[in-house]
Design a binder for these strands. Structure first.
Lengths: 145, 145
DNA sequence: ATTGTTGCAAACTATTTGCAAGGCG
DNA sequence: CGCCTTGCAAATAGTTTGCAACAAT
């Protein structure tokens, strides 16, 4: 969730060129809450950037992930999703509508500390995913699942 | 981590036939702690079951996951890993040697409860992955990462 | 001017599927 | 014996790569 100037700066600092495509990809990701995968991003960008290619989206996300501008989510689907919020927050996915949401303001420190102590690992990251039925889907189809 | 008789029973109860391949796949998975992906399982089984095909491993894991005999792990690799222990325990992966280990006896209830309250979801499952450097790799290459 | 980037198409890889032969119930 | 399963090969889908034209520095 950075300003374009900051994205520009971070790209330059890491030896990458600043291109309209890269900024557009970042803006599109930062502007949505849907945690899109590469194809969703490509479809979002298509109208404004008709020559944008899926390969560019992938290459861009690869670079962004490498320099800490985005994080990659594995919710168990066949494709990766992306999040412009790089803080290590848990995510939750509705098993009915497939929406992926953030969970902020939840204290996972005790769990992390316990994991570190139990395993002796030097922890560098984590991914926490919850699955269930969202409030909306509970109303629509209360019985399924 | 069930006995073969139990696996047999569960397959039958769910209307699936009991075949040597299915039992072999289950045994191979239950016997290892490496959290293998389909290809690793295939390679493990190959010597004893030379006609075993990768497709059979995939189909079998699909059935097993469906009837709760295995769980599928997404550690962020390009392939899924499998675990014969279907309890919802966290996993930890070494970013150096890529080993995936279980974390047992860790209390994730508070986090789950908090997630449920924050989101209003009816939770049905979760996946918790930690990443870092294992004790062994810390000794071998203390500086990297 | 140099070097990195784009965008197309082709390559690649994990997984799934169609189908004929075979095996379980 | 009927139907499900196997195992091969082909298909599929997400992602990556090669490369020539192009653009950022």
């Amino acid at each position: 969730m950075l300003e374009i100037e900051n994205v520009t700066q971070i790209l330059r600092d890491n030896g990458f060129k600043v291109t309209p495509q890269r900024l557009a990809v970042y803006e599109a990701l930062a502007a949505t809450e849907m945690h899109p995968n590469a194809e969703m991003l490509y479809n979002i960008l298509q109208p404004q950037y008709p020559t944008m290619s899926l390969a560019t989206v992938y290459k861009t996300m690869d670079i962004f992930a490498g320099i800490g501008l985005v994080q990659i989510l594995n919710t168990g689907e066949d494709s990766f999703r992306y999040d412009a919020n790089t803080s290590s927050h848990p995510h939750i996915k509705c098993i009915c509508c497939n929406k992926v949401a953030d969970i902020f303001d939840i204290d996972d420190e005790p769990l992390i500390k316990a994991a570190q102590e139990k395993t002796g690992f030097q922890l560098t990251g984590r991914q926490i995913y919850f699955y269930g039925k969202c409030p909306r889907c509970q109303k629509i189809s209360p019985d399924t699942h």
